[in-house]
Structure formats: structure tokens, C-alpha cells
Amino acid sequence: MLGEIFKGLRTTLRYLFRQPVTVEYPEIKRPVRERFRGRHELKRFGNGMERCIGCSLCAAACPSDAILVVPAENNLQQPNSPGERYAARYEINMLRCIFCGYCEDACPTNAIVLEHQYELAFYDRKSSIYTKEMLLVPAEQGHGDIPPVLQQLDRRPSPPAQIDL
């Protein structure tokens, strides 16, 4: 009976001589995995154009209706995105977002991506609405080539989009 108590005491004592597993945040941060679902970012193509074409599939896929997309027609002289449409307004309500990654899975151009940042505290509710300026990556950080289906340079323009969201 006492022997069992001593065995337990010895088990606990062994931990005294081991290195604790604590990661001393914030000086050291535990690295996150590649697929980690953190803060969103709107990506760009390699030539600097925005990947987002304003299709609102992310808004449709979001289980908690956290995304607002107001699409607009691209100015053909100075297009924001390849193709006809771009997102004039793109907002994500971080309080509603559950970080499920459905928007990332739904996006046909891999525009909206959940990156690795998780330190997202704010002090008031207004700061929880992340606007397009906050989400868009800088122009130098684009990647990838524009797929041929979006590079329709010699089509006549289609009628204005009639979207009622």
C-alpha cells in the first residue's frame, strides 16, 4: 500500500529533473502548421493584379455570413483584377468568422486565403470589420500566373453585372 504511494511520488519527482514543456509566449511562439487557419488575406497574381474577381462564392459558402462582397465592373483601362469584375467592397466581420476555411475552399482563384496570424485582439466592435485595404496583400507580394480562362483580352465587354445581393 505504501509502496504504491511511493511509486506515484517517484513518478512526480522525475518530472522535476526534466525540462518543462512550457513555451514562453510571447518571447517564443509555437510555430503553427502549414494549413493553420488564421487571419485572412486577399492575394494577388504575380503581375500585381488582384486575384479576387468579386464572384461572392466565399460569401455564399460562409456558414456564419461573415463576408460582404460588393462587386463592380473593372475599368478596362486600369483593371484591378483580370476579367470583368472585381470586389469593390470586401469586408469580413472577424467576430462572426469561425475560421472554418470554407471561403478558402470555395474561392475559384485562390484569392481569399487563411494565413497564419492569430493575434487578432481589438478593443471595440468597429475594429472587428476587416476591410479590403486591411486584407489585401501589397502589390509586390503577388504569386502565380493568371489562368487562361481569365485572360480574355479580345472579347467585347459583356453587359453590366446585375447583381442584387
Binding site: T12, L13, Y15, L16, R18, P20, V21, T22, E24
Partner: peptide, 10 residues
């Protein structure tokens, strides 16, 4: 501190 070290933490 001692309780923590016995429990594998700091």
C-alpha cells in the same frame, strides 16, 4: 514554482 516543475511546467 515547485508544483509547476513537478507538473512539467514553469
Amino acid at each position: 514554482r515547485l508544483l509547476a516543475r513537478l507538473q512539467n511546467r514553469v
